[in-house]
Every structure is written in structure tokens, then in C-alpha cells.
Design a protein around this nucleic acid. Structure first.
Lengths: 114, 114
DNA sequence: AATAAATATTCCTTTACAGGAATATTCCCT
DNA sequence: AGGGAATATTCCTGTAAAGGAATATTTATT
């Protein structure tokens, strides 16, 4: 099995869309494919990657498979971010802060994760 | 300019290492290359990607270039995670919760983002 | 001005991976 | 048992991207 990280799984646009869709609740492969306008095989393939990354889990119900988000990787991400929050708060009253602020103002590449 | 997302930038192992290294403070290209045992060109290339992703910023000091973390993308990630925290809390007292718990126990792929 | 140090860029090769189309698999239904 | 629906898998192809080696660029130094 390959080495799929949370980041690499979420780096694919359609997979990110799947994750955001599943935020509203569990869905079937067909439903996911339909709502995101993906072909069924691609939906299955992306879900496989998300599954191996541990981002989702499956529940087999007869013919269908219900995919839902798993909580753990998001918590892990949150924990990881924690260490960065500390960084900023520690540096806040640093001497560099003023310079950092100036520097930051010349940078207008404000992109969101999605 | 291409479409580099926070996730795609962090999906590359060495880039993630760079980010975690910079958590301790600004560093020079040479210092980064040395500490992570990367060749200088690769370090430069990765830093370019991180720069375009808006994850880092540069300060030119004579011959050297000091790279440091930018705060914004991490805040954005945090905001994004916020919506997922809500999901879990909303579903906590749901009827599905018990089943979800059972299901989750059969899943032991606990991997952290890094 | 010439040289050296630090960094960026280019070119090349290899590999990973996404999408398309077709096919296999699994499970229900009658 | 046979057919059909839902899903997974395979094969193929094109493309993006990472690493290596070499080279260009910028700035300091003497």
C-alpha cells in the first residue's frame, strides 16, 4: 500500500470536493458522482484514495456503499495546527514583529485552502 | 502562475519538512538545505513552490534570502477546520452515533498529517 | 575588475497519477 | 439461476512534477 497522507489526499481538487460534500452527511458513490458531476469510476477511485488515507470510512448496505467522514484525521490536523498557533503567539511581542508586519503587507496572495 | 494550493504544497514530504523547520524561525536557503540534507537547487525549488502557495515569505539580506512562515494560510486552514469541528459536535447526539462508533473501531489506520 | 559565495533557473529523465473507456465484481430481485 | 443495478478494477494515455547536474544570476569582497 502506498503512502497517502492527509495533505496529498486533499491536494486533488475533486477529492477535496468530495470531502466537503460529505461534511453534510454520508453519501453513496452514485450520489457523490451525480452531485459532483463525476463519472462513477473516478468517484470510486477517489474514494479509494480517501479511504486509504483514512479520511473516510465505508458502510456496505446491500448494493450500495455509504461513505462518511472519519473524525480522527481532522483532529490530527487540528493538533498539528496547534503548534503553529503557538508560534504566532510567542512571536507576537517579538522585536521582529513590526518588520514582519511590514513585509506581510507587500504580500497579497491570499488563497484559501480550498 | 500555476494553481498551488496549501494542500498540494504540503503534500510533498520535503516541503512539509521545510515548513516544520521554519516553525522555529526564519532561515536561509543554505541553512534549510543543510539541516534537511537537501541539495541547494531542490531547496530553492521547493521554497519557490511554498512562496507561490503563500505559505512563506522572503526577506533579501545581501547575498542571502531569509524565508519565514506566513500566518495567513495557517489561519485559513484553521478556519476551514472549524466547519468540521461543528460537524462532529452536531452529530454527537445523533442516532447514528453509536453505529459510527462501532464502525470506527474497526478502522485502525491512525496516521497523522506529517 | 576579478573572484567567490549564495541562490535561482534550466534542461533532462523518470515516475506518479488523473481521466477515459471497458470490464469485472457484488448483490438484489423475480 | 438469470438479469440488472451499484460499485470496483484494469488498461491505456497524457501530463505534471521531483530529483540530478549544470549553469545563470546576484551580491559581497579584495
Amino acid at each position: 500500500m502506498k503512502d497517502i497522507t492527509t495533505f496529498s489526499a486533499l491536494s486533488e481538487p475533486n477529492r477535496l470536493r468530495i470531502i466537503e460534500l460529505l461534511r453534510q452527511g454520508p453519501l453513496t458513490v452514485g450520489e457523490i458522482a451525480e452531485r459532483l458531476e463525476l463519472r462513477q469510476p473516478q468517484a470510486s477511485k477517489h474514494l479509494r484514495v480517501l479511504l486509504e488515507a483514512g479520511l473516510v470510512e465505508v458502510e456496505a448496505v446491500a448494493n450500495r456503499r455509504h461513505y462518511r467522514l472519519r473524525q480522527e484525521p481532522f483532529q490530527a490536523l487540528d493538533t498539528w495546527l496547534e503548534s503553529y498557533r503557538k508560534v504566532w503567539s510567542e512571536r507576537f511581542d517579538n522585536l521582529d514583529h513590526y518588520l514582519q508586519q511590514l513585509q506581510r503587507d507587500n504580500h497579497q496572495q491570499d488563497d484559501v485552502p480550498e
